[in-house]
Nucleic acid binder design. Structure first.
Lengths: 116, 116
DNA sequence: TTATCATCTGAGCAACTGTTCACATACAAA
DNA sequence: TTTGTATGTGAACAGTTGCTCAGATGATAA
């Protein structure tokens, strides 16, 4: 049985078909990519790691990160849209926290990898 | 004891200091960000998920993804540099595989999050 | 109301990213 | 060697990203 070498140069038709069948739907792939993208920036990572310890307000984070409060606000909006952080108002101050433990798990696994 | 409201607008000096002390070193933060960035693209995610099933060559992946072999090669180089994939030569064909199970773990945790 | 603080938002811009194209390289068979 | 196949690489381009700046919004106090 000859290996398929058609004009589109597919060497292993069966494996390609198998990969197609077990693939996640495009919408889920995109969501996954967006989720990882939210973790794929040093500033956002530092925000997430800081909030893993305890909740903080915007100007605390700005002082900690060494960037403008506007920049922090922009990043927090993105993290909010991805449901990674939530906030609570106390007077004029908004306190941000992580919404769940998934991010911490994620970072631990990633640390395992890069420290090898 | 008055709350510290100095010119740099730090509301909670102690929490900021605490975050600073427990922060990861910048080099590690950058590595983490690069690692997540490698997972933060739909094409690369699909490559990683496909290779999680079994090893595939470049033109298999190109056929599966519906993009040029050049594009696949570029993405594979990036994944190789991040030590996420490795290859093995068999004649003219290079077969790519995942280097370890960290990526699979990562994707599972991420899926848990986005499916909630 | 006015004034102030904390935060948010839109515009604009430099830097980065993912793709295609064209060509280069590496291996195998004749 | 020559030819063909599989993959790699650099240039170029559109699209995206993260920042700063200026101004807007919301809450509080006088």
């Amino acid at each position: 049985m000859p290996i398929d070498r058609c004009q589109c140069r597919i060497v292993h038709e069966q494996q390609v078909e198998k990969a197609r069948k077990s693939a996640l739907p495009p919408a889920e792939i995109d969501k996954l990519a967006q989720f990882f993208k939210a973790c794929a920036d040093p500033t956002r990572l530092r925000i997430l790691l800081a909030l893993h310890q305890e909740e903080m307000c915007v100007c605390d984070l700005a002082a900690f990160l060494g960037v403008s409060e506007s920049a922090v606000s922009h990043q927090l909006r993105l993290l909010r849209q991805m449901a990674l952080v939530a906030n609570r108002r106390e007077g004029p101050v908004l306190y941000y926290r992580l919404t769940d433990a998934h991010v911490s798990q994620l970072v631990l696994v990633a640390l395992d990898h890069i420290r090898e």
